[in-house]
Design a protein around this nucleic acid. Structure first.
Length: 491
RNA sequence: GGUUCCGUCGUCUAGUGGUCUAGGACGUCUGGUUCUCAUCCAGAAAAUCGCGGGUUCGACUCCCGCCGGAAUCACCA
């Protein structure tokens, strides 16, 4: 059996956004599943839209998601170069064959003239087809065409319109009539090929077996089929991926609708496992009720024929659910050390001077409250700096407002005295001591625990009290309780 | 306008003629886990399967028509 070779072939025109990253994920999975090769090719033939640094962005995105490529920039390979601008001779060579075979002609019709054809057809409500306007001199001899083209005249395919039938692995059996075939530009005035021509040549030379791309290419497939035919190339398998729809409206998700870049989710503290899981399962499922898939799970379970053929709406909320699942999964299956490694850069500035050991302890009691890693920034400050004492948070608390200030002071005093004597600050021991204190206080858990929790953190919420105290340690806890007691006394 | 695709809970989906009085997940709501927030657990609401015809003993599943939505029609990819 032929080796499976798939590719991701983005244009370096900016970041990879959520809407088009699936055309990297699925070919990757197909390659890995079949022990094949995944190729990264940069389609940079449009000089006008080229964005400096975009290639690096693309590489970063792929690496972060764990979609490592076997051939392409940085990876090498025997089928390079992997930048289209460096493959000019390849395209020219194939173009020549087409000219010699009488299937391509040099066309120097001015752009304004072409525009006028288009406008006229639109006004007349007839489909615009360039071959209806084919210049009389399109029938020049191959030698004449070759000469003109060599001088820099753009090259056009000479269509022989007919019906096409083909199979799309996602959309099924396709059929179109001759009215969709046209004379498309192969080589532009700048000597570089159009996408339409370049990708066919590249895929053939690189031995690509599966092309996964957005459905927007479905309607130009007959033109590609014509090209494959004229070139004498067998076409790869086609997978047309439905669009991901924007959260509102019925439009495909694009940068204009605020489609975030993949790296933005990374910077917001979304784990690559979670994003990959979400994206792979948006428009694909294996028919079971499994929701959580690791990359390895996906490689095993993925199948082309279960890709959905209707567009799926993008739902950011579900990404965060997946992220929470993955944060907990990593903590329990790979340990807090592993999870901690992922948190670099997500701690508040106040944590800078703290030790890894301390931060790891904080992480281990707060992790199941995290939706994203960047929640650490807002949720953990009180572990690193003494919170600002704000008595109103105590006196207006729904459980505590019934208590008088002297009662509060007494409770704090009792707590301080007991905690001061405790040597063992383990979670377990503190749990026992706190229960004992609670009994002694004669208050409801909601009253006593809330008081201590607020006095120590002044945060809207915190982990379980005994854990919070244990991690904070005796010095911080006593210092904070004293500060609150003093403030109450002087109030 | 031509061509092509799509249409099951708010959302992602399962479903390939009877097991569907339509299953799961997110989200929402309720209750539980000695404080908060979250996790976790239990439960609830939520889809006349776009509409109308057929075929069939029987249709979400097959056929036809309609409606609705989308994509594409560049010297962009």
């Amino acid at each position: 059996m032929k080796e499976v070779r798939t590719r991701f072939a983005p244009s370096p025109t900016g970041y990879i956004h959520i809407g088009n990253v699936r055309s990297a994920i699925y070919p990757y999975l197909i390659a890995r599943q079949n022990g094949g090769t995944f190729i990264l090719r940069i389609e940079d033939t449009d000089q006008a839209r080229y964005v400096e640094g975009a290639t690096d962005l693309i590489k970063d995105t792929l690496k972060w998601l764990g979609l490592e490529w076997d051939e392409g920039p940085d990876a090498g390979g025997e089928n390079g170069p992997y930048f289209q601008t460096e493959r000019k001779e390849h395209y020219h060579e194939w173009a020549k064959k087409l000219i010699l075979a009488g299937r391509a002609y040099a066309d120097d019709t001015a752009p304004e003239v072409i525009d006028s054809y288009r406008k006229a057809d639109n006004d007349a409500k007839v489909p615009y087809l360039y071959h209806n306007h084919r210049p009389a001199n399109a029938d020049k001899t191959p030698e004449e065409n070759l000469a003109l083209w060599t001088e820099g005249v753009p090259l056009r395919f000479k269509a022989e319109p007919k019906s096409y039938e083909w199979h799309d692995e996602v959309m099924g059996d396709m059929k179109t009539g001759p009215e969709v075939c046209d004379d498309i530009i192969l080589i532009k005035r700048d000597g570089l090929p159009t996408y339409n021509f370049a990708h066919i040549v590249d895929d053939a030379e690189m031995g690509i077996t599966h092309i996964a791309r957005g459905v927007e290419y479905l309607s130009s497939t007959p033109n590609y089929l014509a090209l494959y035919e004229a070139l004498g190339i067998e076409h790869p398998l086609f997978l047309s991926l439905p669009h991901i729809l924007a959260p509102t409206g019925n439009k495909k998700l694009g940068k204009r609708d605020g489609a975030k870049s993949v790296t933005e989710y990374r910077d917001d503290g979304v784990l690559p496992e979670a994003l990959l899981n979400y994206l792979a399962c948006l428009g694909w499922n294996d028919g079971t009720e499994q929701e959580i898939y690791s990359k390895e799970d996906l490689i095993k379970a993925f199948s082309i024929d279960r890709i959905q053929n209707s567009g799926a709406r993008f739902d950011e909320v579900k990404i965060y659910w997946y992220n929470g699942q993955w944060i907990r999964k990593i903590a329990t299956e790979q340990g807090f050390d592993e999870l901690y490694k992922r948190t670099a850069g997500f701690w508040p500035e106040s944590a800078d001077s703290e030790t890894d050991e301390y931060k790891l302890k904080v992480l281990s009691i707060i992790y199941d409250r995290l939706k994203t890693l960047s929640d650490l920034k807002t949720m953990t400050n009180y572990f690193f700096v003494d919170p600002k004492v704000d008595l109103s948070l105590i006196t207006e608390n729904k459980f505590l407002k019934k208590l008088s200030e002297s009662e509060l002071v007494d409770l704090l005093t009792m707590t301080i005295e007991r905690l001061n004597d405790i040597e063992d600050w383990s979670e377990e021991n503190l749990q026992t001591e706190l229960n004992d204190l609670l009994a002694k206080s004669g208050k409801k858990p909601a009253e006593y625990f809330s008081l201590v929790r607020i006095a120590v953190s002044f945060a809207p919420f915190s982990p379980a009290l005994h854990q919070t105290l244990s991690v904070l340690g005796r010095d911080k806890v006593l210092h904070r309780l004293n500060a609150v007691r003093t403030a109450l006394v002087h109030d």
